[in-house]
């Protein structure tokens, strides 16, 4: 019992859980309309597409793959799917869109893994190009998505809960399962933690890293489809600026930017937290830009905490040691 308590205390999820809980409680108390099912369902719906992106980004980061092109990729996928759907069938649109997303992932992987270009800058550049492609494909205007599975998933509801939320949950469960319970997921974490060591241990590291980029790209593409379906129109500006939000959420959740440590549940909580913050601030008639400011500040704090954790110096790890009654264990 004591060990289990200690383990729970030391979990990297503690910080983000507390942050989410505190923000939910405060907003529910302070802002009258915040606690309604409808509003909470709204937070869920807003979180769905970002959350799907975050799941992909978490898998990628676990494998040591930094992909900053996710927002651009989402916009591009949405635009391509909408244009293709308008000319052929909605299903064809989805297939071609996701195919394009995956190709982007392959290019990212090749540039950063084969040519060892700094992943952050390379994928940022890719983001610019993808945004451009979205404008080219959609002729700089929105392309309507008025029927087909995208609209169903994007706009359908069970009670107050949109289908897209279920889609998000399924993606998150799947992503978490891959990372925790499959040998592939464990290999991704090994490669992300130290690719040279993983190679020596007999893991073929390149394919694993490629999979990281593809997971991220595919998730971004699906997020783009969700966005288009929800709005009923694919706009080239879609998801603009959300890469920062998604990465902040993932890092807030306890995933390491250096690879090897990743938690899908943490990312999900991170996304919910940032969206709660945003919605709460809007409803409280406080400038919603506080959300961006807090997000940036917490990003820095979160990265520092993960760094401390890998050195065994996270305050939570110290607390765990005290609970276990073995202070000597902590270096």
């Amino acid at each position: 019992m004591r060990h289990r308590l200690a383990g729970a205390l030391a979990s990297s999820l503690v910080y983000i859980s507390v942050a989410l809980l505190v923000s939910l409680v405060i907003f529910t108390v302070v802002v009258p309309r915040f606690g309604t099912t409808r509003n909470l369902a709204g937070i869920g719906a807003a979180s769905a597409s970002l959350g799907v992106m975050a799941v992909g980004a978490t898998l990628a980061l676990g494998a040591g793959a930094i992909d900053f092109s996710i927002a651009g990729n989402a916009a591009m996928t949405g635009s391509i799917a909408a244009v293709v759907a308008a000319n052929t069938s909605p299903e064809m649109g989805i297939i071609v869109g996701l195919l394009a997303a995956v190709i982007v992932g392959l290019v990212n992987a090749t540039v950063t893994i084969r040519f060892r270009v700094n992943a952050f800058i390379a994928t940022l550049a890719m983001a610019g190009s993808l945004r451009g492609i979205s404008f080219v494909v959609s002729n700089s205007v929105g392309v309507f998505v008025d029927s087909g599975p995208l609209v169903t998933i994007g706009q359908g509801k069970v009670g107050d809960i949109p289908y897209s939320v279920f889609f998000f949950v399924v993606t998150a469960v799947l992503g978490g399962w891959i990372l925790r319970s499959t040998t592939l997921g464990r290999s991704m974490l090994a490669v992300g933690g130290d690719s040279a060591a993983a190679r020596i241990a007999g893991i073929r590291t390149q394919p694993v890293q490629y999979i990281g980029y593809i997971a991220s790209a595919l998730a971004a593409g699906m997020a783009g489809l969700l966005l288009a379906g929800r709005a009923g129109v694919a706009v080239p500006q879609a998801a603009s600026g959300t890469e920062l939000l998604v990465f902040s959420a993932v890092l807030l959740g306890g995933t390491s930017l250096n690879g090897g440590r990743a938690t899908v549940l943490g990312s999900v909580l991170g996304i919910l937290f940032l969206n709660t913050l945003y919605t709460g601030l809007v409803l409280a008639k406080v400038s919603p830009y506080w959300q961006t400011i807090i997000q940036g500040a917490l990003l820095i704090v979160a990265v520092r905490l993960v760094q401390l954790r890998s050195e065994g110096r996270d305050p939570l790890q110290r607390l765990e040691a005290i609970v276990r009654g073995r202070m000597t264990d902590v270096r």
Binding site: L244, S248, Q291, T292, Q295, G296
Partner: peptide, 21 residues
Amino acid sequence: HLDSMIVTLGTLSVFGGVAFM
């Protein structure tokens, strides 16, 4: 003790948010 790329990624949000606010 953080890489400045991380720090400035964070302050990009913070400064940008302040500018908008």
